[in-house]
């Protein structure tokens, strides 16, 4: 596996759910060119809860969007899946990308996660319904039990609290048994109790159900739920921390902030 001089290669030896190899993402051209991702190579092993952290503008959201097949890449490879099922998603057209998102990827966004016209249950099974696939009722019940939403299934999003809405989103992400779930600041709009519920659920889905989760966050205490934290700055991976604690992550972030400041000279 090739790696650039500037990025710390973070390749793993076990089965890998998603792998970014020498990933480059450039916005604009000429004078307005911005390198958002600068030769990033990173593996996300199966059954691991990874948090991506970094200061604003570090490229953490861009990395996630590229990994989740929501954004195109400028160079490099994104490999999804294990063994024979591994796909280089850069080679897919829009139709197959859409199907890939539908069948193999789960999403949890910061806000506006649910369709207001559908009930909680309908929102949960939405990707399966779109695909025209049958819902595995036993699995559905298990997921709904895990997010504790049994008595809320008939409600519309407007009748649910923020935390409940986000748990519906979690259930939706999980119900189609995706290869990987991407969560973009899932607790950004929640209070601490609701945050703890959502993060606890994500953690359990990894530990108990063997799900792979990749989460972008800027909250050190959210990151502390993860098995590993990957730190990004200026489009490059600068560090990694396993079994993180909130304090440890906070310290690391502080040093990253000051580093960015010294490099930019503008903060």
């Amino acid at each position: 596996m090739s790696s650039s001089m500037s990025a710390t290669p973070l390749t793993k030896t076990g089965p890998v759910a998603v792998r970014a190899a020498d990933l480059v993402k450039v916005y604009g051209a000429g004078e307005t060119e911005v390198v958002a991702l600068d030769h990033v190579t990173v593996d996300f092993p199966v059954g691991e809860f990874t948090a991506i952290m970094g200061p604003s503008g570090s490229g953490k959201s861009t990395l996630m969007h590229c990994l989740a097949a929501l954004d195109s890449i400028s160079a490099g490879q994104i490999l999804l899946g294990v063994g024979d099922e591994q796909i280089d998603i850069a080679t897919l057209n829009d139709k197959r990308l859409t199907a890939l998102r539908r069948d193999r990827i789960g999403f949890i966004f910061q806000q506006f996660n649910l369709l207001p016209t559908l009930t909680a249950a309908e929102n949960i099974t939405l990707p399966l319904d779109i695909a025209g696939r049958k819902v595995d009722q036993a699995w559905f019940d298990q997921v709904v039990t895990a997010v504790d939403l049994h008595d809320r299934l008939k409600h519309r999003p407007t009748e649910l609290s923020g935390g409940q809405q986000q748990r519906v989103a979690c259930a939706r992400a999980l119900v189609s048994r995706p290869a990987v779930i991407f969560a973009d600041e899932p607790t950004g709009n929640l209070d601490s109790t609701a945050s703890a519920e959502v993060l606890g659920f994500l953690q359990r889905s990894v530990r108990e159900l063997g799900q792979t989760v990749v989460m972008v966050t800027h909250d050190p205490s959210a990151a502390s739920y993860a098995d590993r934290v990957v730190f990004l700055a200026d489009g490059k991976i600068v560090d990694e921390m396993t079994s993180p604690t909130a304090d440890g992550v906070l310290d690391r972030m502080k040093s990253l902030d000051s580093r960015t400041t010294s490099v930019d000279g503008s903060r």
């Binding site: 859409t98 506006f112 207001p116 990707p127 939706r172």
Partner: peptide, 16 residues
């Protein structure tokens, strides 16, 4: 826009 974007994100095809 955002709603349609969400649907597309979770796998609604262009044709759909």
């Amino acid at each position: 826009t955002r709603e349609i974007g969400l649907l597309r994100a979770v796998g609604l095809q262009r044709r759909q």
